[in-house]
C-alpha cells in the first residue's frame, strides 16, 4: 500500500504507519493502545510499551448497556498514563475493527489527539516487527475529561427513527446474510440476539471489511473507497449518515472510514444497532 499521505484521504492525519509507530515506541508524548476482538492476543504478545483497552471490560458500563461515563473515562486514562495532550495510537486485530471502536468511544469524550495504526496487528506481524509479553505500567495521570457528548457521533433509536422518517442515509455494515434476515444470531448466543431479522428500511448494505485490503489489513485508498461508497452504493458525502451493525463495533469502523478517510459531513454510529432494532416493538423493518 502506498504512503498514507498520497492516498487522497480527507483527513490523512488520523492514520499513522507501522514505521511511524516503530519510531515512536519510546516517545512519552505517544501512548500505543491495543484493542482486539480476541481477548488472548494482547497478553500473548503486543507492541513494546503498548497498553490494552478492552472493549468488554474497559469501554462498556458493566451494569447498563452504555459506555463508560466521565469518571470511568478519567480513571481509564489515569490507568494507562494518558493526558489530554497524549497522542493515542490505536491498533488491533481484524483490520483494526476494535481499534476504531475504541477510537470512536474516545471521541465521545473529545480525545481527538488520536490516530489509528494503518494495517493494525496484521501488518505489524507481517513485517516481522517485535511483540513482547511484558505489560508496561505508566505513572498515573490526572485526566480532566469533559462530560460525555454523544450527539456529534452517536445515534440513539429515536434519532434513527427520526432520520428514517426524514429519508436519511443509512448504512448497514453487516454481512449480506444478516442484512437479508436469513441469519439472525447463534442459538447459543443470547447476548447478541434479535427477535426479528432484516434491516432498517432504506439502508444500504456495505459490509464493513470492504474498506480494508485483506492482504495487509490497511485501509483502501480514497479512490477505491469512493468507488464502493459513492459510485457503487450511491451515498452522498453531504447527506447526514447513520451506520449500524449488530452491536455498533463493526459500524464504528465504517464511521471512521466515512468521517475521516472520505470526509463525509456528518456520520453517526448507531451502537444500539440490530440487537436493539431487531428487538424493538413496532419499528419498521425491511427484508
Amino acid at each position: 500500500m502506498s504512503d498514507i499521505a498520497s492516498r487522497g484521504y480527507a483527513n490523512p492525519d488520523v492514520l499513522v504507519s507501522t514505521e511511524w509507530v516503530a519510531a515512536h515506541l519510546d516517545d512519552p508524548a505517544v501512548r500505543i493502545i491495543e484493542s482486539n476482538e480476541d481477548q488472548l492476543l494482547y497478553p500473548s504478545g503486543h507492541l513494546p510499551g503498548a497498553v490494552q483497552v478492552d472493549w468488554a471490560v474497559d469501554l462498556n458500563d458493566q451494569l447498563r448497556r452504555d459506555y463508560l461515563r466521565r469518571d470511568g473515562f478519567e480513571a481509564l486514562m489515569a490507568r494507562i498514563g494518558v493526558t489530554r495532550e497524549t497522542v493515542c495510537v490505536f491498533y488491533g486485530d481484524r483490520n483494526n475493527w476494535w481499534a476504531t471502536y475504541a477510537y470512536w468511544v474516545f471521541q465521545l469524550f473529545g480525545h481527538d489527539n488520536a490516530r489509528v495504526m494503518d494495517g493494525g496487528r496484521q501488518k505489524w506481524e507481517q513485517e516481522g516487527r517485535p511483540l513482547v509479553r511484558e505489560v508496561p505500567s505508566y505513572a498515573a495521570t490526572a485526566y480532566g475529561a469533559p462530560e460525555r457528548d454523544d450527539a456529534p457521533v452517536r445515534a440513539f433509536r429515536d434519532d434513527v427513527l427520526a432520520h428514517l422518517e426524514a429519508g436519511g442515509q443509512l448504512v448497514d455494515v453487516r454481512s449480506p446474510q444478516e442484512y437479508s434476515g436469513e441469519r439472525l444470531h447463534m442459538p447459543d448466543f443470547p447476548n447478541e440476539g434479535a427477535l426479528r431479522g432484516g434491516h432498517i428500511p432504506g439502508a444500504r448494505n456495505i459490509p464493513w471489511a470492504r474498506a480494508a485490503d485483506p492482504a495487509d489489513g490497511t485501509f483502501r485508498d480514497a479512490a477505491e473507497l469512493r468507488d464502493i461508497y459513492l459510485n457503487e452504493q450511491g451515498l452522498s458525502p453531504d447527506a447526514d449518515t447513520i451506520a449500524y451493525c449488530r452491536i455498533g463495533e463493526r459500524s464504528s469502523h465504517t464511521w471512521f472510514v466515512l468521517t475521516h478517510l472520505l470526509g463525509f459531513a456528518n456520520v453517526r454510529n448507531y451502537d444500539g444497532s440490530w440487537t436493539e432494532w431487531g428487538n424493538l416493538v413496532n419499528v419498521p423493518i425491511e427484508k
Partner: peptide
C-alpha cells in the same frame, strides 16, 4: 454441550469468536 465454549472463554466472548469456536 455448546456452552462449554462460554465456560472456557467467558461470557464476554464476541459473537464472531463464539461462532468460530462452536
Amino acid at each position: 454441550p455448546g456452552d462449554a465454549v462460554f465456560a472456557i472463554y467467558g461470557r464476554e466472548l464476541s459473537m464472531g469468536k463464539g461462532e468460530g469456536l462452536l
